[in-house]
Design a protein around this nucleic acid. Sequence first.
DNA 1: AAACAATGTTTCGCGGACGCCACGATCACA
DNA 2: TGTGATCGTGGCGTCCGCGAAACATTGTTT
Lengths: 147, 147
Amino acid sequence: MFRGRHDHTMDVKGRLSIPRVFRGELVGDGESPPMLVNEKDHLALFPANVWSAEEQRLMEMSSLDPDAQRLRRFYATGSVPCPVDSQGRILVPGFLRDHAGLEKNVIVAGVLERIEIWSPSRFEQGQTTTVHGLEDIKRSINQGVRS
Amino acid sequence: MFRGRHDHTMDVKGRLSIPRVFRGELVGDGESPPMLVNEKDHLALFPANVWSAEEQRLMEMSSLDPDAQRLRRFYATGSVPCPVDSQGRILVPGFLRDHAGLEKNVIVAGVLERIEIWSPSRFEQGQTTTVHGLEDIKRSINQGVRS
DNA sequence: AAACAATGTTTCGCGGACGCCACGATCACA
DNA sequence: TGTGATCGTGGCGTCCGCGAAACATTGTTT
């Protein structure tokens, strides 16, 4: 379970050191490398087994459903195996840096089963809007509108 | 069950002593450390088992629901394990201090299953608005509008 | 063969973290 | 009312973990 927020900086070449507290759980037994995945406005980093479970669910969706097909394409195209080097760093490919709008300063956030990598400005913005809507979100979830 | 209000002060480095009466229940058997959690306008401190139950509920929400995802991100990113040192103090990370607007003087309040940490001004303000709206709150709860 | 790109390695320095101790105020109890 | 114990405060001081940047090495391409 990943938790907390860390302000880190990226190499000019796109190398980013993973917070120490995350490394153990992230690499697991080291069998297969973690996965770096493109999301709408940020990147996500998964332990191999967690992502493969997620991927499994994508594959189980109907290939006749255009939406499912789109979803599959988006994630398949935007995901990359991402080994952690001996100094605890990952290399973020250029096209993912671009999509997530990452520059030198980034935020590495623990979100339970995943690690998220954000541009600071986008992150702050997202958080503030979340805070504003927080009570409504809680209410609607509490009422079982979703779940 | 935590009760009562305590005016304490924080270290320049963010160390804060927990009221004596809270310590026993807070650390429990000491297996896993208490959790310090960011809330909208204050911080909350939980015995490990209490927070992990809460976290469990977060994880069970659909990862396809954007609102659930936001909620998860908010709480996971804003929570950090928070061991109590040998002198009964915790260390409050800088980013949580900022979010809660904490400075030197803080209020440590017992709120049944949780301990809350407030900036004095925000606390007072919250209390007064609660007092004003008290009757309405009671009414709507009584009507089962929530929960 | 030279230049650039990619990856691996080393070092430095900041600051976070922790432990200890002493002062002082407050509370309890005699 | 006095005395003692408890508990919070804060002030050092030190340590070392960790991240960041610079450096070295390898490999690849034309």
